[in-house]
Amino acid sequence: MRNLANGCVIGLAGVLFFSSYAWSQNRQANQPIRADDGKTLYDKASSTGSGGPAPRQDLTGFWTGPITAKLNPVPPMTPWGQEQFRSHKNHSQYSEAESNDPMKYCDPMGFPRDMLYDNRGFAFAPMPGKVLQAFQFNRVWREIWTDGRELPKNVGGRSADAADPRWYGYSVGHWEGDYTFVVDTVGSDERTWLDSVGHPHSIDMYVQERYKRVDHNTLEMTMTIDDPKTYTKPFVITNARFRWLVNQDLVEEICVPSLMQEYLKIIADPAGDVSGK
């Protein structure tokens, strides 16, 4: 029966007329999910207006998005960065079976990939001396210290006091004025990818996010990457916009390793089987 099905698809290939459009090989921007009527996943959140003025120094609550996001091209990589990049097989250019994207194994996306991904939303939750940022996807969180502490230095270094690398790094935040929250992050584990294309980063990467609350319902974020070991100059990797989630209820979406294995077995591995069936 397998041969029969194979033969059918081989025959099918003979009559398929391939579109002149190329598949997206370097998907960078997050793609909004579009319903039958053409509305995006975030249209509902986008249609609620400003909601009034932004409160002072407050991002508390659930935000959905990115409503709009654009990942900018990365600058030229250093030889080290190029070497890392060559070893990354993303799932746009490779089949899922061939890819070595950490997501394939439900490994942590880490920071900043979880912010550059189609994360569909997150929450800011203030606590004494810190703000938690909790993500819809995989229900992971990071802590952003606001008690004035400094970021650790020499993360991953050989000295006795060097901090360990972390999947989600070390972050501190402060307000600039009443409406812009600035978050600085170091120490992201370099086993994580910067984005779904597979752009690399080093343990020396410094990331700055600037969250500007434009009004009650609108949050804009700009992220800058400075990683001289990997890239020849700092760059703004994205400008994204998020919206106040109307019902403040993020759905659950978790990468479950056993279910991922089932998906790979049933779908991805056969789809990527180029061994002659």
Partner: peptide, 19 residues
């Protein structure tokens, strides 16, 4: 039927025909 190849939210399209 022929289409522009779509982009997938989470996983890749490289393994699939674009028709």
């Amino acid at each position: 039927l022929t289409f522009c190849g779509p982009t997938f939210a989470h996983h890749g399209s490289a393994a699939y025909s674009n028709s």
